[in-house]
Structure formats: C-alpha cells, structure tokens
Computed example of a mutant assay.
Amino acid sequence: VVENIARKYGVSKGELLDRESDDLAVRVALGETQVVAETKKALTNAGINVASLEEFASGKVDGHKRSNHILLVKNLPYGSSEGELANMFGKFGSLDKIILPPTKILALVIFLEPSVARAAFKGLAYKRYKDAPLYLEWAPDNILSQNPMDGNVKDEKVGEGDARRVILEQAVDGISDVDFDPDRVESRSLFVKNLNFKTSDESLRKHFSEHMKGGRILSAKVKKHIKKGQHVSMGFGFLEFDSVETATSVC
C-alpha cells in the first residue's frame, strides 16, 4: 500500500512514513482504503465479479467450487507488469488473458486449458518474482462477470468453454491425413497461431472458408489487447465450426 501511494503521488516512502508525523496511522489507513477502492473498480471494469472474490476472501463460502483454469496471483510487488507475468505463465501453455489492476495488488491469470493451469500452478507456486514469492490460489468458479465494462476485455463470453478449446496442429507440412489424439479432439474450435498482425476477423474467416471441403464456420475471432488506446492483434485467434468433424478436417 505504501509503495503504491508513494509512487502515485510522487513522494518517497520515507516521506510518507515520517515517524515525526502524528497522523501516520491515519495516512496509511486512508491509503489502504483508496488502493482497495481502485482495485475493485479496475477489476469490475475488466469483467470480474468482485462480490464473489470478497465472499471467497472472507471465508463465507467454504467448499465453494473453484475454477479449473483461472489462478489468483497474490503477493505481487508494485513493479509487476502484465508482460512479465505473461512470459512467466505463458511458458506452460496458451493463455486467454491476464488481468492486472493498476494498483498491482493481485492478478488473475486465465488459461485456455485446465491442464496448462495445473502445470503453471505446480511450477510457479512460491516461486520468487522480483523480491517476493508468488502466492497462487484457484479462483472461485464464478469470478468472471457476464458484463465487462471496458475495452480491455475480449468481447465474447469467457468461461468453461474456453478451457475446453484444444490446439489441433499439423506437425509436418504436406501431410494430408493427420493422426489425432482422440482425447484432444473434443471441441469444434481451432486455435490458430502465427497470424500476421494485420489479420482481421473477416480475413481469417475468408481464408479458411476458401480451403474448406465441407461444413460451416460459425465464428472467427482474432485475439486482441489494448495498447496505447488501440486494439492490437496478439498474433493468434480462434475459429469455431459446426461440428468436431469439420474442425478436424480443416485442421
């Protein structure tokens, strides 16, 4: 809290924690209240169900179902960045998104697949990040709100459907018939990587539709994030088809 307030108002922590001051406790308490309020607002705007998070933290919902693909990342230093977190957690597999409020009090890391989330939890719990260990916890399963309020979140609903998306890739160029692991072919969606950053939803749909022998594309979406006020492609996207068979054939 002290680091947060000091950086926000451009003062040193020493000035903020002046032992000669007779209102030190009040000053820190007000700072904490402000940080909590800012964090709640940022999380709400990013599509997080803050009420479920508060109930979860208070212990009023013992035994409440936890998410299998969303991690709460706590004990973050104020110098944390979304890019650094993405690099750390992304090493384990595909991320949907990371939500990091400006206050840097905590972050939510949302994975596309539960198996990747489990591997990240095992690999990063208590791992040192900057000057502190990471505290990881499974988020409540209803932590994602239905109504995000700003442009920093993707348009489509985020939920258990994302966790069931699978990566179906053709390992060798020129192979027409690919042996797929039946455990992985459980979705009508394809995860498409290595997209040109100029690729749009429309051009993605058009390219695949021109090479399909049958079936229909239900949706095509290039994943984007906000950078300097602009929607910028992240270089990958998703295609949803009318059946698992169509998705397999197209892949």
Rank of each mutant, 00 (worst) to 15 (best):
I167L: 11
E202R: 15
E137M: 05
G159L: 04
A120T: 11
A57F: 05
G214F: 08
L85S: 07
V35K: 02
G83R: 00
M212D: 06
S203I: 07
N68C: 12
S94C: 12
V35H: 01
G235Q: 00
R184D: 15
L85T: 06
E240W: 00
R27E: 10
L76M: 07
G31L: 06
D173G: 07
G90Q: 05
A120P: 03
Q170T: 09
I105A: 15
K8V: 07
N152R: 14
A6L: 15
N194D: 11
T199H: 08
R165Y: 07
A51L: 02
R184M: 13
V185P: 04
S219P: 06
I110S: 02
N4W: 10
R205Y: 14
G14W: 08
D23K: 02
F208I: 03
F111L: 03
N75G: 04
R205M: 15
I5C: 06
A119L: 15
R7Y: 06
P114N: 13
P77C: 04
G83M: 05
K97M: 09
I48F: 06
W138R: 08
K198Q: 14
P140H: 08
G10C: 14
P182W: 03
I99G: 10
T33S: 07
M212L: 11
E245C: 06
E156Q: 12
F208A: 08
G159C: 05
L108C: 03
E54K: 04
K228A: 11
S94E: 13
Y135M: 06
I217T: 08
F238S: 05
I217D: 05
E156A: 13
G90H: 11
Y126S: 14
